[in-house]
Amino acid sequence: MTEAGVEQKLSSGTNAPSIKMKGEKVSVHYGEKRALFDVDLDVRENQVTALIGPSGCGKSTFLRCLNRMNDTIDIARVSGKITLDGEDVYDPKIDVVELRARVGMVFQKPNPFPKSIYENVAYGPRIHGLARSKSELDGIVESSLKKAGLFNEVKDRLLESGTGLSGGQQQRLCIARAIAVSPEVILMDEPCSALDPIATARVEELIDELRQNYTIVIVTHSMQQAARVSQRTAMFHLGYLVEEGATDKMFTNPDDKRTQDYITGRFG
């Protein structure tokens, strides 16, 4: 157990879940500009961790570090250490493809591929070679869609284009697409920001259900959403991690003045 773990145990007082991912002194530079300052944050297994904070505070940047999506940005430079099950994900020995298979991602704007619903979900298992037969692939697609709570809505039109679905359905399709790869961690970057309230509620429900099997990190703009879906919350401001702790404590009795101000709507 690390110090953070011990501290966590003390503060929550219950049998804390083990730590799945861990960031130590994570800093990110975009060219000359520094976007993240020495962030230490743990992600606990089978819990939802919410990252909150005003725009441009670095929460999405941190999220994208967890599965090295920042690699796709030429000017981004990451320092510090991030581990997945104790392995440094920025270790040159670690393969980024394998990492992303284990740490899936759902994006802000639903981005289904311009393919059929079936093909969207089957894409991940196909490229990773997870299914040995057509029937096994069918099984993965069906169970993923079911877990994403989408199966009943689309079961009759699996071969229609994924871009034809409504926004909320598209986002759940993207979640199903991520689940189909059997990741261990799912990262969600403001998954509901482009959705209407009803679709948002549906996705939030889904996130809560998914917690049984996956570790989830979610970036959100909405404090209510963080309060509703997460067990733990981390507050970012201007690239610094301000405060981190159990969600109920954060929303009732935060340690930091800035957190207090933010959740009460004084800024952000």
Binding site: R100, R102, G104, M105, F107, F113, I127, A178
Partner: peptide
């Protein structure tokens, strides 16, 4: 870019993203 990100986020290699998405 969101489609490329979506594919990369699932662990696709660059050529898989290009060829299949």
């Amino acid at each position: 870019q969101s489609l490329r990100d979506g594919s990369a986020g699932l662990g696709a290699t660059k050529s898989e993203t290009i060829r299949k998405v």
